[in-house]
Amino acid sequence: MNEFALVWEHRDMILIGFQNTLLIVVLGTVGSLVLGVLLTIPLMSRRRGPALIGTIYVDAMRCVPFLLFAYLLYFALPSLGLDFDNWWTGVVALILYNGAYMAELFRGAWANLPKELIEAGQAYGFTGWVLLRRIILPPVIFAAIPLVGNQLIQIVKDSAFLTIIAVAELTHEATSLQTTYFVPFASFLAVVFLYWLTCLSIESTVGYANRLAEVRR
């Protein structure tokens, strides 16, 4: 119990880590959703060039463990002349990595879209960007919501890997708390609990969004 009291005393450390994790997850979510949608367009393109490039990118990301990818960026970005600090490197890694997974989810939803729906749009004279934005993307996104929810949980879990490149997120703060005061049990249990809370709130939000989307499917 002493342990828990110590952790409570130093809760500001845990809270800083929690704040960072939440911020990283929010940025990662928004970024990977945007990247996912943008990537879906070449993936579904009828032209072979863009489709091929999109597929290679998505498949490559799906074959790489996140930790190795984050490390790669950590070492590679500076040599490309991009001087990001660890924190931003982590965010960029999350976005580039999970964006590919999001794109794959959207591609699947798009492929399952009834052809008539798109044809009806075309019949009413929609083309190009407007067709995409008004007719195709909304049902694709509605259909993908439950799977997107799973991917968001994955973003939360991936964010913990960033401790290894010394990003001051939740797990990292718990580790430094434990090495300073030797309170492994309480500090790790506390962060496991915070991850759990985060994911539960994500799941209930996604569940709510899914019910809203239900009537529009």
């Binding site: 939360v156 879990k157 913990a160 890997f161 797990t171 492994p184 790790f188 962060v191 496991v192 994911c199």
Partner: peptide
């Protein structure tokens, strides 16, 4: 466990 990052779980098991 489903929502717990593997890194964190490993730390919990190894140190706690």
């Amino acid at each position: 466990v489903r929502t717990c990052p593997t890194v964190t779980l490993a730390l919990l098991i190894f140190y706690a």
